[in-house]
Design a protein around this nucleic acid. Structure first.
Lengths: 340, 340
DNA sequence: CCCGTCGCGTCATACGTACCACTTCCGGCG
DNA sequence: CGCCGGAAGTGGTACGTATGACGCGACGGG
């Protein structure tokens, strides 16, 4: 299999009857006063005729830059990170940058020294907080953290783009409190990440500030069955909560299952809320009240910050507000309804 | 901002007191009888001390290969393609290859007209059928198609890895027929792709071969509300179907909503089936009977085929069987139950 | 008539790596 | 003693591109 070698700029030069330098000038676009329009057209035609595509490796070597950034996320199998990629890739493409994705620790196999294969020709790194530990693999590379909280790496400050999850959680709690709920159950993700700690703390503070507010709490993995079990534990306590606040839409799906298993109707007997507003939220019955986190914009903003950093500008830290989406899974508690 | 230049193999050579050639030999691993163990250790130590990382661009240029393949999918925001990536990346990493993702037509921007557009340094392309049209952007590049059907590109044969969707659909129809269903409604995706054509044809043939079998059909986009509308149309016909066969799990979620809107219980009044077995299938209530398509294995097999192709081996076409997953959304029809 | 200038291009080089061809050292054998 | 051969390592070059430093003819002013 003789790998057919693609035409080089030298071939184009020969075809057009000019020198390789001229080809480079013309195709590089900076020939304003150096090449006559006629010659430029000839070069373009020759390139077209031969189907010339510049060799990226040579260009990268010459320029010392790859115009490629690495997006590090824990997984693409979860519904949340696809849109993050989409937003990041859109902004990158607009600036002529490419994006390579690395999932970590999903890719924990292969040569242990580099789970990233040959993708190390990188100008910068955009890393989700869940992949923060892998940042050390790229010392000296400009980086931006996503959703990691404001206090990551106090020694070596790294720009961050975060969600306003605390505000989002306060909005949820306020919404439920406004409906008359006082007994809250928190089905929390057992994941040691800033975003979940922030959610838990915001909920706890809001409930504590509510006259008569009571909060119970249980934890689970981010999957349906584990969430169902945790919800069952909360609901089988004496004086069970009238509203389950879930850290995540998928966890809320587990809460639905728990309610169904106990013969409770959502939302008449039990209000349930999620977080993130992934596709699932509108596929469930009833549709889920949740907080929309603009994942695509997170990727876009993060990429913008990273490109700023690469251009020598200092990016501003940025917080993207979450938005309460009130759907059909929340309603006044039975007791309150009776009370009125 | 003086971009701090990383150490090169020349720096390592100086540090170790040897020539650059020797550094290359040692770090390249092919020094079996050419370099003394003592020298090799010295080189390794020096490299470690300086934190040397080889420059990928230079290596790519020298070797004429990038050890990187492009995965082209329509989007990462849909739940199906994340696992495809995961499987592909796992196999690639095991062989020292990296994967870059391109979503298309999601990324429909960029200076595509210029030959200096964002041309990627790529050894091969792994393309989902939904992105088949973009293959033309990489002429002469080895490629493997995923889920495109056996007859794509008759002129220039391209290896393919497909799902056995026809068998999967026959399994669904057989399962429903075995429960006693005779009146089927097909909520079909209005997408012009082989996989959906194959599903429709397999279902039509199976129902036609069933004594007393009746099939009605309506189409929708792949989203919940559009699917709900299509399902409502099918269910509001005279003599409505007792089972809705959906092209996709998300469409099945729409069918659930239609059933609920009409006051029908799933599965007592209406059986519903999906396709793909994405995360959603077990989050719904009742859990969805569907066909599991091993998406991760599709990516893995496709990558294996592509690496074979790159190595000069001729990959065998491969079909991955779908597996019927009978859950709680299917049951005998009311009429049949009464009949017994 | 000569020299500066300008428009149009070309020469040469460097980026960092891998690898072929070559040299040097040195012990052993005829 | 001379020669051979293997071990150990080095010199040099090429990959394809971008770009600063030049060449060169023509034109025009002094």
């Amino acid at each position: 299999m003789p790998a057919i070698s693609r035409p080089t700029s030298k071939d184009v030069a020969q075809e057009a009857g000019v020198s390789q330098s001229t080809v480079s000038l013309v195709l590089g676009g900076k020939w304003s006063g150096r090449v006559s329009p006629a010659t430029a057209r000839g070069v373009r035609d020759a390139a077209e005729r031969l189907g010339y595509r510049p060799n990226q490796a040579a260009r990268n070597l010459r320029l010392g830059t790859t115009r490629t950034v690495l997006l590090m996320v824990p997984t693409l199998s979860a519904p949340f990170f696809g849109p993050v990629y989409t937003g990041a890739a859109r902004v990158a493409a607009r600036h002529g940058f490419g994006v390579v994705v690395s999932t970590w620790p999903d890719d924990a196999q292969g040569p242990a020294d580099s789970p990233f294969g040959s993708a190390e020709a990188i100008d910068g790194v955009l890393a989700s907080s869940m992949a923060v530990d892998a940042l050390g693999r790229f010392p000296g590379t400009p980086a931006v953290m996503l959703d990691s909280g404001p206090d990551v790496r106090p020694g070596a400050p790294v720009p961050t783009v975060d969600f306003g999850v605390a505000d989002g959680m306060r909005a949820i709690a306020g919404h439920l409190a406004g409906l008359g709920h006082r007994r809250f159950g928190h089905v929390a993700a057992a994941v040691d990440q800033w975003t979940f700690h922030a959610r838990a703390e915001a909920l706890a503070r809001t409930v504590a500030a509510l006259p008569g507010g009571v909060l119970t709490r249980d934890t689970c993995a981010i999957d349906v069955t584990s969430a169902k079990d945790a919800a069952l534990r909360l609901l089988s306590a004496p004086d069970p909560p009238t509203a389950l606040v879930c850290d995540d839409d998928l966890i809320a799906a587990g809460a639905y299952k728990a309610a169904r298993a106990l013969g409770l109707d959502v939302p008449a007997d039990l209000s349930v809320t999620g977080f993130d507003d992934v596709l699932l939220a509108t596929a469930l019955e009833p549709e889920l009240t949740t907080v929309r986190l603009p994942a695509e914009e997170l990727g876009a903003r993060g990429m913008t910050a990273l490109l700023d950093l690469l251009a020598g500008r200092r990016p501003a830290a940025r917080v993207l507000p979450g938005e309460l989406i009130a759907r059909a899974s929340t309603a006044p508690p039975r007791a309150a309804t009776k009370g009125v």
